[in-house]
Structures are given as structure tokens and as C-alpha cells.
Design a protein around this nucleic acid. Structure first.
Lengths: 350, 350
DNA sequence: TTGTAAGCGTTATCAT
DNA sequence: ATGATAACGCTTACAA
């Protein structure tokens, strides 16, 4: 009988190496490698012996050794500012799903506005075969630096960068559609809440806002009210706006969270939505259907954004395409009640 | 034969190795290693020469070589069933944040009910120094297998497993509190929607539901209505329930999404909440505050769940603790309006 | 078909 | 203080 070790003294058992398998099967390590990679021709009896040894020792090739020898990680990364809110988590979900299907692991890195972000991103780049950078998490230069290093990069929800692929949605034209809709319904005092300078998404939506006004021959009534993509900030910005001398008849939130905050601010002031104030959002997060009135918004294909980014990255890694590709995914205007269009019903829509 | 390569054919430039730095600085690779690890004593002039060479070549040590030599990945993983909904993404966010702070990368793996999940988890385990497994993503045996292999594992929102640490919240006692609250207010026909057998969270909440009835000397009026943790399923289950001969006066959803679905189902049937039907949820996701009536629920410290798991894992990896630890985090009953307690106000609470 | 041996890029142990 | 050199565990020419 083998002497029992107490749990405390038992060392973490080292996993068997290819050498031990080879010895046990009476072959060379090259043959073991051939067998477990299912590659090249190995004589049936030899193969059986090796497979037996692999099973006996429950051998699993060490990933580091394997990756080092092959020069690839079979992993990709994604950098995002923050996971809070449905937008980022859904994009990441799509990305993860698409990558897992291709047999690649996914490393995530949230920057959270940390100071050492750039170093962390470069660090991440050393662990992956390519990565996605979302929004304004880091500046253009580190991204170009990665491109020069030969690390495939896809930027997401951000203007194209040298050497990198990009995936975006049609912000400008959708914003034009949305704001045009409000203008058609007679609104002339429309305010925008968001930070056009702080994110390209917000910037492009603001541009579309302006374009719609231009097309309609209406001059914009307000400067943008600056707000991050969060509900609290949206509420505060809307409160400031509604306290001003000139009161808007409609508010266009740069995303749904901001719009929800604005609805809150309006409610706090006793302003009825949509009768006295129309409010619209962006993204079509699940919550938009649950609030009353249901939020008019622009649907973004969040899962597809992630999937598309994964696909571009895959292509870059697998093939040797070098010219950058820039994909723009379509969006969809979702007209509900908060713009004053559909009278709120008792039954929620699906 | 060497020939000029066009940009298109040029392979990704290999990054410089420690040998090239050593050559350029006129030292051995050992010295370069010492310098860039900031380890051991290196004479100031030598150090400067090496640092110069490192900067000139913008050398970054290869992670695979480094990890292979040191025998650690400086990365940890997390396995979850799905990222949809605020619960998982928030837990993961806390986990990622806590890990990044400790200088460890995070690999994520969503199982999405795929058939080859177990293989993927074992695969993931080969890339990390430890991992977290959430809920019922995989069975007990593969987890114990990992424990035997010496891979630190923390299970989250799942009953403790041999050799693994665990982090949970106080489901049972909180459910007792919540259901006790409903019983005190006179409810005698309370239904539970969720899948006690499908998740330990739901199971423990159901147990608490039963315990509260027992304590109050009331016999439970319904068997659990089976539903996954999703809104659509919650709505369907509630619709079935409300179509039955015996109608509940209160519904306890196993999580907020289910409760929101139930509110929808009630609305569709013209049943007023909370006057004719009280509804409660679990988790306290952001949406609970936005619906009307605002949802009474149990707040789970989702960020802390992730952080705590990261901390336990860190401890396991860093120290040589071997006895498993099992942490239970507190929850908080959040009484809003959907249970009939607080008359809905015009102003949403913060 | 199988084996030998040279990488892959580090770290870390010895010498010196 | 610095340098040789043996791991680390695998893949893959090339040879036999």
C-alpha cells in the first residue's frame, strides 16, 4: 500500500509530460506528438499503444509549451471601458460566443479609466493573437503601435485607425432618421444629451442630429448637454436642461440610459412624457420596453457587433489579409411611445 | 535566395528576443533577464547599457517563454452559463476588476448550454492558474478532477464541492425573510416561479420559501412553477399560473427577470399589481427601480461576489492554503411597491 | 513509419 | 557582478 499523504502535505501533482507518455508507450516524443495532434500517419498498433499511455496518465499537452513551439496563442482579447450596462456585456457576449466556436479563448480587459491602461493593453497584446479595442479606451498611437508590431487589431465603435479593421453601426444616418421623425411631428425645440467629444458614437449621433435639422431647415435650439452614457448623469443633465429658461419639447438621449435618466428628471418636475416632452434613446436595451411610456430608440445589433469583430479578427489571423476592412452594421429605428407616436397601451409590446 | 518582399507579403515582424538585446548591449542573456525583471544586483553602468538596448529595440519579453520557465500563467478564468442579463455581467465585472488590480489577466468562457462544455472547461484550466465556475455550468466530477490536478477552483452560486472554495449569498434566510414579509401581510396563496432543481440559487430560495411557511404554520399553496431565469419564461409560467383555477395573491419570482415577466403577464390579464397580486423578485437589477410599481426584491452584492471569488482564488494561488473556504455574503431585503407595501409615488426612489 | 535533435524565449542555478 | 547553461514542454524538419 502506498503511504497516504495528508491533504496538507500533498503537493500539487505535476501533470505528465510528453516524455513520460513516450516512455510508457515505448516510442519517441515525436510519435506521441503526432498521435495527440491526430496528424500524419502513425501505424495503427503504435497509435493504440500511445493512446493507451495517454489515457493511462491522463496526459494533456502543456499549452505553454505548445504555444511557444507553434508561435500562436489561440486566444484573442477584448478591451472595453466598463462592463456596466447591457451594451458592453452584450457585445462581449457575442464576441465570446463567436470565438469559442472557433476554438479561441477570450481574454477581457476593462480599463475603468485606470491610469496605467496603455501598459495593460500592450501587456494583453502579448498574450493573444489579436484583439478588439472598444471605444475610447486608449488613444490612437498605441493602437497603431500594435498594428506595426503585427498584432491584428479591430476597433469597435470608434473611428477607423491606421492598420486596424473596424466595426461600427450607422450612427449618423440613424440619428438623422430619428431626429427627422421628431421634426416631422412638429418639434422645433429639441435638445441632445450626450458627449459628442467624448465618444465617437455620441459624436456621430450629434452630427446626425445636426444634419436632420439642416435638412429640415430648422436651426438647432440647444447646444449638447454634456453627459456620460449613464443614467445618473443623464438625469442630472436633463434636470439642468429642464430648469433652464428655454424648455425643450423633445430630448434626444445619446443612449437609453441617458434617456431613462431624463424620463426620471421629467417625472420629478411633474412634466408629462410624451405629452409635454418627448424623449428618445439609443441601443434598445431590454429596459426600454418596461418603462412607461415605452422608449422610442434606435436598435443596435449588439451581439452582431461582437460577432463581426470576432469574424474580422479571425480572418486577419487565419489568412494574410493586410488591407484593413471597415464594416458598418445597420441599425433600426424603433418607434414606441415616448416620442408621442403610439399612445401607450395597457399591454406591453413584445 | 533573399528577395524583397512587398508590404503585402511581408510577414508580421518578429519581436526581438532576449538574445538580440544581449548582443546589442554586449552582455549575456542572463543579465538582460536580471535587468528587465528589476531583480538582483546589476552594476549601474551595465544596467544602463541594457536598458538602452531594451529601449532601442523596444524589447518586451515573450509571455509564453516567460510563463513556461516560471510555471505560472498570471491569468485566471471564469466559467459562466451565459452573459445575458445584468447578474452575470456584473459578477464578472467585479471579478475582472479585482484581478486586473492584482496583475492577472482574465479568461472568460460562456458555456451557452453547448455539448462540449466539459472539454472546454478543462481546456481553459490549462491556460490559467485557477478559475471560477459559476452555477451549474458543469457537473461536480470535472470540478473535483480539477481539484485533484492541483488547479485552484472557486465555485460561485453553487453548493460547495470537494477541494474547491465557494462563494455564495444567503439565499435561504433571505427568502425566509421575504416570504415571511408576504405572509405577515396576510398573503396565504403565494406561488413560487423558478426552477429549484435547475439551480442551487433557485433551490435554496425555494427552501427558504418553504421554511417561512413552516414558521408561520401555513401550508404552501402551490408547487413551484418551473421557469429558467429569463423574462420570457417567467411571463409564460406566470400566465399558466394565472390561468389556473386557484389564483395566487402573491408571486415570488426566483429572480428579477422572472418577476418582470410575471408583471407583464398580470398586466396582460388586467390584474392590478400590487392590489390584486403582489410580485417580488431577486437580485435588485437596475430595472427594478424603473418599472411601475417598483419591484420589491432581495439585493445581492453582485460586484462583491466577483471580487470575493477573485480574492479567494488569489489566496489559493499565492499562499499554499489547502483547506477549502466557504464564504457566504449577506443580502438585503429591498421593500418597494410591488409587494403592496409602499404606495407608488410619482417620484422614483433613488 | 519512426526517431533524433534543433528550435521556441524565457528563468534560474551554478560557476567564475 | 556576470556568464554558461540546463531546464520548461512542446512542434517539426530532417534522417533513418
Amino acid at each position: 500500500m502506498v503511504k497516504a499523504l495528508s491533504a496538507a502535505e500533498r503537493p500539487a501533482r505535476r501533470s505528465p509530460t510528453i516524455y513520460q507518455v513516450a516512455e510508457r508507450a515505448g516510442v519517441s516524443i515525436a510519435t506521441v506528438s503526432r498521435v495527440h495532434r491526430r496528424a500524419e500517419a502513425v501505424a495503427a498498433p503504435t497509435r493504440r499503444r500511445v493512446e493507451r499511455a495517454i489515457a493511462d496518465l491522463s496526459y494533456r499537452p502543456n499549452r505553454l509549451g505548445r504555444s511557444l513551439a507553434r508561435g500562436r496563442h489561440d486566444a484573442i482579447g477584448i478591451v472595453f471601458p466598463d462592463l456596466s450596462g447591457p451594451y458592453f456585456s452584450t457585445v462581449i457576449l457575442g464576441y465570446e460566443e463567436a470565438s469559442a466556436t472557433r476554438g479561441r479563448s477570450v481574454l477581457i480587459l476593462g480599463t475603468h479609466g485606470r491610469p496605467d491602461t496603455q501598459r495593460q493593453v500592450l501587456d494583453l497584446a502579448d498574450r493573444v493573437d489579436g484583439l478588439v479595442v472598444m471605444g475610447r479606451t486608449i488613444g490612437d498611437e498605441p493602437i497603431e503601435e500594435l498594428g506595426r508590431r503585427g498584432v491584428p487589431v479591430v476597433v469597435l465603435a470608434r473611428p477607423p485607425v491606421q492598420l486596424a479593421d473596424s466595426v461600427r453601426t450607422a450612427n449618423g444616418s440613424s440619428a438623422e432618421l430619428l431626429v427627422g421623425h421628431l421634426l416631422e411631428h412638429g418639434h422645433r425645440e429639441i435638445a441632445f444629451i450626450g458627449d459628442p467629444a467624448g465618444s465617437s458614437d455620441a459624436g456621430e449621433r450629434w452630427d446626425g442630429f445636426l444634419a436632420a435639422h439642416r435638412d429640415a431647415g430648422v436651426s438647432p435650439a440647444f447646444e449638447p448637454m454634456i453627459s456620460a452614457f449613464r443614467e445618473v448623469e443623464g438625469r442630472e443633465a436633463a434636470a439642468r436642461l429642464l430648469a433652464g429658461a428655454r424648455r425643450p419639447t423633445a430630448i434626444v438621449g445619446a443612449n437609453d440610459e441617458i434617456a431613462l435618466g431624463a424620463m426620471d428628471a421629467a417625472r420629478a418636475k411633474g412634466i408629462r412624457v410624451p405629452e409635454e416632452l418627448a424623449i428618445t434613446g439609443w441601443d434598445d436595451i431590454p429596459m426600454t420596453r418596461h418603462v412607461s411610456p415605452a422608449l422610442t430608440t434606435v436598435r443596435q445589433p449588439m451581439l452582431d457587433l461582437g460577432r463581426r469583430a470576432a469574424a474580422l479578427l479571425d480572418e486577419r489571423i487565419t489568412t494574410n489579409r493586410t488591407e484593413p476592412r471597415h464594416d458598418v452594421l445597420p441599425t433600426e429605428l424603433v418607434v414606441r411611445s415616448s416620442c408621442g407616436c403610439n399612445p401607450p397601451t395597457n399591454r406591453k409590446e413584445e
